[in-house]
Amino acid sequence: MSFAERLKSLIGEESVSGFARRVDISEALIRKYLKGSEPSLAKANQIAMKANCSLEWLATGCGYLYRQAEVVDKIALYAAFSHLYGREPSETEAEKIIKMVTGYQYLRTHKKADGYLDIQGMATFLQLAKQDEPE
């Protein structure tokens, strides 16, 4: 998969102009990348950071699509839950909490200037994150 194909995949259903605004790069430059031009490391990193994408995946196609910051630390989760409820969470409770926190992190980092929350984007992200989980 080429950089242009990975970028197109990252943009998904979002408009090119909307994506360009979100990553703070001109629409013309994003369109240039979509036609096959390669970005500088600085621009690729800017896209990755603003789109919550792994720079490694965006640049090479290897690794995880989304940054590992979205992975919830289970030890910390269990400790917080135990502190609040006096017991460890069941596996089902833990998985639901992890999914909720991951969705929250996505919405928080993708909030638009007008306050719009991209619920569909979150749903897609959660589905992709689930596919990225090691078996």
Rank of each mutant, 00 (worst) to 15 (best):
A20I: 10
Y33V: 02
D73Q: 02
A28T: 11
A20V: 13
E56A: 00
D24E: 15
S37G: 12
E56I: 00
E27F: 03
I47H: 05
T60H: 00
S37R: 08
C62M: 04
S37Y: 13
A44D: 03
S37I: 04
N45T: 15
N45D: 15
Y66W: 04
C62E: 08
P39C: 01
L55G: 02
S15Y: 03
L55P: 02
R31K: 14
A51K: 04
Y33G: 01
E13T: 15
S17W: 04
K35G: 14
D73V: 05
A59Y: 00
K50T: 06
L58I: 10
D24Y: 11
D24C: 10
Y66F: 11
Q68Y: 10
V72H: 03
R31F: 10
A28H: 04
V23D: 07
L34C: 07
Y64H: 13
V71D: 13
E27H: 09
E13W: 08
A28K: 06
S17Q: 09
R22S: 12
V16E: 08
A28V: 09
I47S: 07
P39W: 01
F19G: 08
E38D: 11
E56Q: 02
E14R: 15
L34F: 13
G63D: 02
Y66Q: 00
A51M: 04
S54W: 03
A28F: 06
S40D: 14
G63Y: 03
F19W: 12
P39K: 01
E27C: 06
G36P: 02
L65D: 03
K43M: 10
A20P: 05
S15F: 03
S26I: 03
K35H: 13
L55K: 00
S54L: 01
R22N: 08
Q68C: 10
S15V: 07
E38H: 09
D73M: 01
W57C: 05
Q46P: 06
R67N: 07
A20G: 10
V23P: 08
Y66E: 00
I30P: 04
S40M: 06
L58F: 12
I25A: 07
V72A: 06
G63I: 02
E14C: 09
L29W: 10
R22F: 09
Q68W: 09
R21P: 01
K35E: 14
E70K: 04
E14P: 01
Y66C: 01
N52P: 00
S15P: 02
S17V: 12
E13F: 09
G18A: 08
L29G: 10
A20Q: 08
G63L: 00
L34M: 10
V71W: 07
D24S: 15
S15A: 06
A44F: 02
L29S: 14
R22Y: 07
L58G: 06
T60R: 00
Q68L: 11
R21Q: 11
K43S: 15
E70Y: 15
Q68N: 12
Q68E: 15
